[in-house]
């Protein structure tokens, strides 16, 4: 029985961990999709941006809440950080598009 609890606790821990990155990289809502399309960013681009943000921007440090910086501030931060992450231009653009869209819906 103890083992079952331990396994459940372990699983809860892992699922909790996955949930914790949703604050730094919220899922793409219909509102975001609409907003993105209005500025020429496809749903796929936003999805790619989110994935890249969560995987490539977490190798050195944790994600920060999107609400912490303005769209302009994010622009400067991503430009600086993209260099350090070895991001290609289209990857950087996808992250910028995603962050801009999320920030505008907050």
């Amino acid at each position: 029985m103890f083992k079952v609890y331990l396994t459940l606790a372990g699983l809860g821990f892992l699922v909790g961990g996955c949930a914790s990155f949703r604050e730094g990289a919220p899922e793409i809502s219909p509102a975001m999709t609409k907003l993105g399309q209005a500025s020429g960013d496809s749903f796929e681009k936003l999805v790619t941006g989110r994935r890249l943000l969560a995987t490539r921007c977490t190798t050195c440090h944790a994600l920060e809440p999107v609400s912490k910086y303005t769209v302009e501030e994010w622009g400067g931060i991503v430009e600086d950080m993209a260099d350090r992450s070895g991001l290609k231009e289209e990857e950087e653009n996808a992250i910028q598009a995603y962050l801009t869209t999320v920030r505008k819906t907050l």
Binding site: R56, T59, C60, D83, R84, S85, G86
Partner: peptide, 18 residues
């Protein structure tokens, strides 16, 4: 460029260079 700054010196992390 960096694949990610290391958090550990004996333990390896699972993330790799792009």
């Amino acid at each position: 460029a960096s694949a990610g700054d290391r958090r550990f010196t004996y333990v390896y992390e699972t993330t790799t260079a792009a």
